[in-house]
Amino acid sequence: MINKRIIIQILAAIIGYIGLSMLVPFVIAIFFHEKEYLSFLYSSLLLVIPGFSSYFLLKLTNKEEQTNLNIRDGFLIVTLAWIVTFFVGTLPYIISGAIPNFTDAFFETASGFTTTGASILTDIESLPKSILFWRSLTHWVGGVGIVVVAISVMPLLGVAGMQLFKAETPGPTTDKLTPRVKETARIIGLVYVLITFFIFLLYLICGMSLFDAICHAFGTIATGGFSPFNSSIGYYKSSLIEYVVIFCMFIPAVNFSLHYAALKGSFRSYLKSEELKWFVTTILASTLIISMFVFFKITNHLSKLFVQRYSM
């Protein structure tokens, strides 16, 4: 049987937390004296009040001592949580009028939380800073969600190929989603926050403004791609920033359990990982090919010999 009650309870809590996260752009809006602070306040209240109140109501009336979740509930919660998040995440865009069309707002939010980075916006720079911040924040929240789900929940659900973290935290013996998930999730969350801060500092040092550094750090750590500028990182025209961004993009694309191991002091695990080896090889090979073509396009001598379409 599907445990409807506990599923709704968890979803309500997630809605509440998303509402809470909207208070951060609320503060940003006040800081930049933007009138959008009201939109964020309304959106936040609209989610926090019903979300948390129904959560506690359900929790208090729950007579069962243990919350037993089986694998089916797991699949349902993970999928529904993402969809619900997409819906409620559109509120700031719509209330502020930054993206008045619901379909567009949903697309932008889904793109944000899934760390896709595809946008329906034509002029990003014309948007208020607080909205831009929310846009990048959806990346950051979605990013940690993906890592946590991938590393601590998916293995329990038996989704293949995600069992790598088990080496660090031995896998469960039952098919119930119980305390170990919490522990694993907490560790990954911590690693995520630490790396975000590290990237943010690097960006700040190489010349980004405080606001831009935060937004870009969110976009980078989540492998998202939203930027507060129309021309993305190209805006800076700085090779230093480009190299730093390249390095930082590389970090979150590596298995987080390796980072965790490294933070605990065992850097060797990077060298031992076969997946990482292939990842680096693929990057180097592709870079070589593309650089060659960029070079030939620019110089335009050899391209005539080699790349030209053959016609007689």
């Binding site: 694998i71 089916r72 699949f75 989704v159 293949a160």
Partner: peptide, 9 residues
């Protein structure tokens, strides 16, 4: 069948 196997491991 792989999807079915996920629900009934």
């Amino acid at each position: 069948s792989e999807i079915k196997r996920l629900v009934h491991p």
